[in-house]
Design a protein around this nucleic acid. Structure first.
Lengths: 320, 320
DNA sequence: GCCCTTTCTGCTCATATGAGCAGCGGGGCG
DNA sequence: CGCCCCGCTGCTCATATGAGCAGAAAGGGC
């Protein structure tokens, strides 16, 4: 057949015959007039130089190399990275990450006795994607105050109930607004026996699952009426990149507005940081900054995210 | 590790470990608690279902499957399809196709004694990409009238000279305008001994290499001043899809305007159709229609094109 | 021009993979 | 309830592939 001398080109021809035409290395050798060992070596060099790209196209595929890099770089105990390929829109991506989180949760060993969760669209998606009987006897407890002001009331509760039901466990809600107007109110509600009991239960959970919001006017906290768009703008001006369990943090993972934080009901971030297992599900173009803040400040031990966010986190421009 | 029952998902996990992490099927089996045979079968099914995509990323890679389909569908003796991936803009794609044509020409056996060529940007690119000494003693002859009216004068000649020089052969130019104003002039110039001699030589060439132009005001024939934009618009109105060696054809490969054709100097399309080896290099989004006309009307025995055009040609909406 | 070093080639042998087959088990049917 | 059929499992064995090595070739310094 063709006589080419250039080795690189030859390796490409060999690769075409081997992979596209699936011939054996012997056959390729016969066609290109090479020994099969030479063909093997050419193929190896083509792989080496990255000319051969093997991609696994499936919505539930994962990016193991990225996962390993993330766990190493940010000292996580685990990372799940779902592929972006074929995804259309932020909703689709969030759904994939949620699926990943659901799969991870189901495979988590030891099975947590009590699981502390936050709420939001992402958590809702996770709940939806858990299979019936994903575990048995897992009790679920909310770790931050729920939605209650507007029509979205109930989604937070529904998420908790769904996760618990599918694991044949109990759900415990945190019967409190997410953010109160006065610090005193917050202190007294926390002191209430019911609320205090839930908070204690939350503090003793064996694992946590939460997401993070972007600091912007489309935030769930704004939609739910706890904050105004102007409040959030001000937080952004002061360096907020997003919120975790209702608490706004800056790029370093620090509370942006301590006085606001004192009016927020739920687990403190420091409590979350000292948890043995805390799973953060953060995916989407817009969440790169929050994701970075979360992983660099040690807020989670496990990160579930998408390829794009993972690549951004591993971007060498930001040394870990 | 994880315990998943769904077979599809399992095959994806196996594929990740096998391809991304390059573990052996045995190791994958150990991780997923499966026998290595089961792993092999899962991998096979994943390939089967198309979840594993192996791509060869290299500018000079080819698409052998498409090539085979083209040769079969259009009864070509050969087809070269270059990948579109990573290409930016029509120029880039044309360059790749030109490279493909140059490679093909160099590997053509038997080596043509005389090669008839047309001219244009594509042919220029091919000439540029041929390696010095791509063959020995190949004489080149122009098969249609050259550029001569404006500043681009000479490129047609340069293309012929370059191809010939690199093969240590002679170049013979066709010393005539591409299109004349009056039929009589065309007839008398063709009768001239010099021109007639070149045309005879062209007719006896052992192989031909040409490209095709799109019927539009950016056509080389317009740029060179042989036709006006209005002329071309009229041709398009009458069904022209593009030109081959200066002659405008419709979707069926028929001459659109016989009176114009009678004023065009060079090989007739029928002569081209009866050639044993005629290589058409036609690539780019805009050239799908001409490419189709060329292959369906039997104008070439070998087609060099890009992936996009090939896919369009194989589109089942147009039965061959 | 000669010799030494470095790279490349084609081999042997160990290992990984795929084809084909017998046995098992579960579901449907009498 | 038992039987049969189909599909799945885990095997044996043949084949394909990759590691490692010895000899060949090529290139460079003197």
């Amino acid at each position: 057949m063709e006589v080419i001398d250039n080795d690189e080109l030859l390796s490409i021809r060999a690769a075409e015959l081997y992979y596209d035409e699936n011939k054996t290395q012997d056959e390729v050798g016969a066609i290109l007039k090479l020994t099969r060992w030479k063909v093997g070596r050419l193929l190896a060099s083509a792989k080496e130089k990255g000319f051969i790209r093997i991609e696994i196209v499936h919505p539930r595929a994962r990016r193991l190399i990225l996962e390993r890099s993330l766990t190493e770089r940010f000292a996580l105990s685990d990372a799940i990275v779902v592929p972006t390929a074929g995804t259309h829109g932020a909703d689709d991506l969030r759904a994939r990450a949620a699926q990943g989180a659901a799969d991870y949760l189901a495979s988590l060993r030891p099975v947590p006795r009590t699981l502390g969760i936050s709420w939001g669209r992402t958590l809702h998606d996770v709940a939806e994607r858990l299979t019936e009987g994903w575990a048995t006897g897992v009790n679920v407890v909310q770790i931050n105050g729920g939605v209650s002001v507007n029509q979205r009331a109930g989604t937070a509760a529904a998420t908790a109930f769904e996760i618990a039901r599918k694991a044949a466990g109990q759900a415990t809600l945190l019967p409190s607004p997410a953010i109160l107007e006065r610090r005193e109110t917050k202190l007294s509600i926390e002191a209430d026996r019911t609320v205090a009991g839930v908070l204690n239960l939350a503090a003793s959970a064996s694992a946590y699952l939460y997401s993070a919001g972007v600091a912007g006017s489309d935030s769930a906290l704004v939609e739910s009426g706890y904050l105004t768009g102007a409040d959030v703008d001000e937080l952004v001006r002061r360096g907020a990149v997003g919120d975790v369990v209702g608490r706004y943090i800056d790029a370093a993972g620090m509370i942006v507005d301590p006085s606001l934080d004192e009016r927020t009901v739920g687990m403190s971030l420091d409590a979350l940081r000292s948890a043995a297992t805390s799973i953060a599900v953060i995916a989407g173009e817009g969440k790169h900054a929050v994701a970075r803040a979360v992983v660099t400040s040690g807020l989670c031990t496990v990160l579930v995210t998408d390829e794009g966010t993972a690549l951004d986190l591993l971007n060498p421009d930001f040394p870990a």
